[in-house]
Amino acid sequence: MENFVVSARKYRPATFDSVVGQHHITNTLKNAISSKHLAQAFLFCGPRGVGKTTCARILAKTINCQNISPETEACNECESCRSFNSNSSFNIHELDAASNNSVEDIRNLVEQVRYAPQTGKYKIYIIDEVHMLSNQAFNAFLKTLEEPPSYAIFILATTERHKIIPTILSRCQIFDFNRIRIDDMVRHLGSIAQKESIQAEPDALHLISQKADGALRDALSIFDQMVTFSGSNVTYKATVENLHILDYDYYFRLTDHLLEQNLPGALLLFDEILKNGFDAHNFLVGIAEHFRSLLVCKDVQTVQLLEVSDNIKAKYAEQSQKSTVSFLLSGLNVVSTCDTNYKSSKNQRLHVELCLMKLAHLNAALSFANEGADVKKLR
C-alpha cells in the first residue's frame, strides 16, 4: 500500500515527446526554445486532465536546462534538472490560485519576482487554476505581467478561459489544449498495461477511453480502478460490469427486435435494463447514438467517424446492412422527440415505452407509405 503510486502520477510525461495528443503545442514550445523566441507569459487553456500543468512543468524544466539535447529536450543530468526532479529547485515556483487567490498572495509573488535567480537563467512561475484569482488580484498582477524582468517567465493554466479578464489575456501567448482522442488514449493505456504486465482487451481499453470523455487523467484513474477490480486481466465484460455501463450488446439486441417488429422483445429488454439499475433517459440517449452509428456505417467514407474497436465496428457494419436509411432517420426523429419531452413527462417509463412501440411499428408504417406512393404513381 505504501509503495503504490497511481498511474496518472507514475507515468506522468517528463519530456515533450512523451506528452499524449498535444503535438501542435509541444512542437511550438520546442521551436520557441530552440529559436530563443520565448514569450514572457504563456496561458494554457483546455479541459481537465489533458496535460496543461504537465506541459508547464516540462517547459519550465527545459528552459533552465544547461545542456538541452538536439531534440530540444531536458538532459536530466545537469544541476538544474536534478534539482527539478527532486522538487528542490529555487527557480521554479508553482502556485495554486484556487487556494491563494487574494491580493496579498499576488503581492507576495510580485515581491519575489524582483530578485534575480542565483543559479540558472530564468525564474519560472507556474500559476495553476488562474481563473480563481479575484479581480483585485488580477489587477495587482497586471503591471508585472506586462513588464516583467528579463529573467522572469509566467506560465498560467486554466480550465475556464472565459473567466479571465481581457487585459490579462492580451498580455499572454495563448495555447488551446485539445481533448485527447480515443485512439491516442487506447495506445497510451496499452503501453502502460504492457509495462505493468497486465493483460488488457482492446475492447476494454476503448470502453475506458470513451468513459473518460477526452481527459487522460480520468482514463488512467478508471484503468487503475479496473486493475484493482479484476487483477492483471482486464476484460471487456469486467469493465462493463464494474463501470456500470449500458453495453453495446443491449442496443444491438434492441435494434434486432425493432427491425423484426418484435414489440414484446423490445419492452422486455427495456424492463431488464431498468431492473439492472440503469437510467431510462441514458438508455434513450444511447438508442439515438446507436442509430447514428448505424447511419454512419452506411457509407465507407464515414465509417472512420466511429470511435470504437474493430470488433464492435464489424458488428455495426453487419447490422447497418439490415437497416434501411428511412428506418434509421425516422427512428432518430422519434427518439429525438421523446428525448425532448422526457423531463416534462409525468410517467417517464410509459413515455419511453411509447417511443419503443412507435419504433417497433416503424417499418410497417414506412412500407405502408411506400405502397400508397406506388398506388398514386399507377393512377
Rank of each mutant, 00 (worst) to 15 (best):
M1G: 14
F4I: 15
V6N: 15
A8S: 15
R9W: 03
P13E: 08
G21N: 12
S35N: 14
G46P: 03
T54R: 03
A56T: 03
A56G: 02
A60K: 01
T62N: 09
S69K: 14
T72V: 14
C75G: 11
R82W: 04
F84T: 09
F84G: 05
N87M: 13
S89W: 04
A98E: 08
D105R: 01
I106R: 00
Y115L: 12
K123M: 04
L133F: 02
N135S: 05
N139R: 03
F141G: 01
P149K: 06
P149A: 12
S150D: 08
Y151F: 13
F154P: 00
I155N: 00
A157I: 09
A157R: 04
K163E: 09
L169D: 04
S170E: 15
R171Q: 05
Q173Y: 00
F175D: 08
N178M: 13
R181Q: 14
D183E: 15
D184C: 09
G190Y: 01
A193D: 00
K195L: 12
Q199N: 10
A204R: 01
A204T: 04
H206K: 04
M226R: 01
V227Y: 01
S230R: 03
V234Y: 00
T235N: 06
Y236A: 13
K237G: 05
T239L: 03
V240R: 03
L243R: 00
D249T: 13
Y251F: 10
D256H: 12
N262I: 07
L263N: 05
A266S: 12
L268D: 11
F278L: 11
N282S: 10
G286F: 06
Q301S: 11
V303N: 02
L306T: 01
L306F: 07
L306R: 00
D310K: 10
N311G: 15
K315Y: 07
A317Q: 14
T324P: 03
L329H: 05
V335D: 07
S336M: 12
Y342P: 07
E353D: 05
L356W: 02
A360D: 04
N363V: 08
D374K: 08
